[in-house]
Amino acid sequence: MARDLMKRETNGNVAVAERTRNAVTYTPRFDIVETEGELVLYGDLPGVSKDNLDVRFENGQLTIQGTVEPRHADHEFLYGEYGIGDFYRSFSISEDIDAEKISAELHNGVLTLHLPKAEAVRPRKIAVKAG
């Protein structure tokens, strides 16, 4: 389990123009589950507060950007097993999403995003009439 929980660097897959403060950007880990009515995303964004989080949905592209305040500027580490950096991730959402109803919640460093499906693509049970 340990490996799954570690932070991953983006390996260059970042929007370079947006990087202004931290030298390193990390790809946050995400769980995505689809139910009948919505897509739910859970993302680990430790150290990101509500004010430093930017979530956008545009043309089927969901972008999550979290800024983390550098907090170890003058520490000399005895253990330094993880780095501090911003978070960036973007997803292409192929489902039709009702953009007006997207909701986001950040609690203890975990982002929960609810993306309700548009009415048109929700599964519908068709009533069959006896002829």
Binding site: M6, H72, H75, Y79, G80, E81, Y82
Partner: peptide, 13 residues
């Protein structure tokens, strides 16, 4: 930086 050997990864100073 050293990858963590176990969860959680730690910084110590």
């Amino acid at each position: 930086e050293l990858p963590a050997v176990a969860y959680p990864a730690l910084d110590l100073w």
